[in-house]
């Protein structure tokens, strides 16, 4: 396997403008779903076959009564050893050699969805209820193989999303986590050595999202 690409998601720089969430829909031609306000800005409520990128928004108070509002631009981690592929015996899920992108082919309709989902530590794969096909982020495979960065990364104003060669992104992520640690002792680059989409967080990952650091 080549070194491939990686995406840094530096949540400390995210303002939840949700440009990435919509840019993903725009580029990939994904339709909207009917939603309702469920007492949170985050919408749609969850990833789906037509929502591959979702800014999760979690608020609360920490020990000192200080309020936080954490933003977590959730998407497939494009794992180095993808758990979802454990059930893929006939090429339903592919891992691209050059880029490292993990791709769901149309054949995923034949997979056991629950088993695939359980194989993913990050709760990513979603099934189209009609066609039974599975969907998730493609790392904008079409763009990155044509010298364009992923649509979500391009839309990000603050540098919360950065795309690049894996080595460099891992280094940036780890350095950023180390820098944040000076102010926020709990800061971390989540599973940086196992995933291609590396999240840097300031606080306990579960304060962002239940599966932020994996199941």
């Amino acid at each position: 396997m080549s070194k491939g690409f990686s995406i840094l998601v530096d949540t400390s720089k995210c303002t939840a403008c949700r440009g990435c969430q919509i840019a993903c829909k725009q580029w990939n031609g994904l339709p909207a779903t009917q939603t309702k306000n469920w007492g949170n800005y985050q919408n749609p409520q969850d990833l789906s076959a037509v929502t591959w990128k979702l800014v999760r928004m979690a608020d609360g108070t920490n020990g000192h009564g200080k309020v936080y509002w954490n933003f977590f631009s959730d998407q497939c981690r494009h794992c180095l050893s993808p758990g979802c592929m454990a059930v893929s015996e006939n090429g339903e899920i592919k891992q691209d050699e050059k880029t490292g992108a993990v791709l769901f082919t149309p054949k995923t309709k034949d997979l056991d969805y629950q088993a695939t989902l359980e194989g993913c530590p990050y709760n990513i794969p979603r099934q189209d209820p009609k066609t039974k096909r599975l969907f998730k982020c493609t790392m904008c495979f079409d763009r990155i193989t044509n010298n364009e960065i992923p649509a979500c990364v391009k839309s990000c104003p603050t540098g919360a999303l950065v795309f690049g060669e894996r080595d460099k992104i891992v280094e940036i992520a780890k350095n950023r986590a180390a820098e944040l640690k000076k102010t926020y002792p709990t800061a971390a680059a989540l599973n940086a050595d196992d995933v291609r989409v590396i999240y840097v967080v300031k606080d306990d990952p579960t304060k962002y999202y239940e599966f932020a650091a994996g199941k």
Binding site: C17, R18, I22, Q26, P31, A32, Q34, T35, N37, P44
Partner: peptide, 25 residues
């Protein structure tokens, strides 16, 4: 709101934005 423009007269007609911020709260 980041997802709507003023009274929403443009943005409520746009499915992606309405999906992200669907109703009054």
């Amino acid at each position: 709101l980041a997802e709507h423009w003023c009274s929403g007269a443009f943005t409520r007609w746009q499915p992606w934005l309405l999906e992200a911020q669907p109703e009054l709260f």
